[in-house]
Amino acid sequence: MVLVELATGTIVADPDEVATVLEPTADEAALHDAAGGNAGPIAIAFPSFTDGRGFSLARLLRERHGFKGEIRAVGHLIPDHGQFLLRSGFDTAEITDPEAVQVWKLRSSASATIISRPCAIPCRCAGMRPPRPRLRSTRCLARPTTS
């Protein structure tokens, strides 16, 4: 099991201990509690790689609950999730196969552009995008990822 930093596709050498694990069924109260803890990373579980609820949860943590710490995806993940995770507000993904890191890196860097909206607002890329959102914007990959 290794932790991939989504923005760079590199392995995080010394991962922080997860403070809260959110299941996909987490409600507003659970999100509020997790975000208010001001503790370490929040992990969001993906019981199946087709279960997209975690994307909404991450975005709500960023937008509604102002969470600025690390959001980590855990569970059944594939490299093709990478850019969706990143743009929904995730920072890291826990993957089972260390060999796959290269693919995660490739998939993360394969897109120089996105057509859809960028990641959750406000998030790390705030201030690096045009002041008003547009349908197209350069994705926020090049941005520093530490908060």
């Binding site: 087709t50 997209g52 994307f55 929904s88 057509i115 859809s116 909206r117 959750a120 349908l135 197209r136």
Partner: peptide, 17 residues
């Protein structure tokens, strides 16, 4: 067209039920 651009590879809504 606006919806097409908005929905294409939407970060949150690309893995719907």
């Amino acid at each position: 067209e606006i919806l097409r651009q908005w929905s294409t590879l939407h970060p949150e809504f690309s893995w719907l039920p």
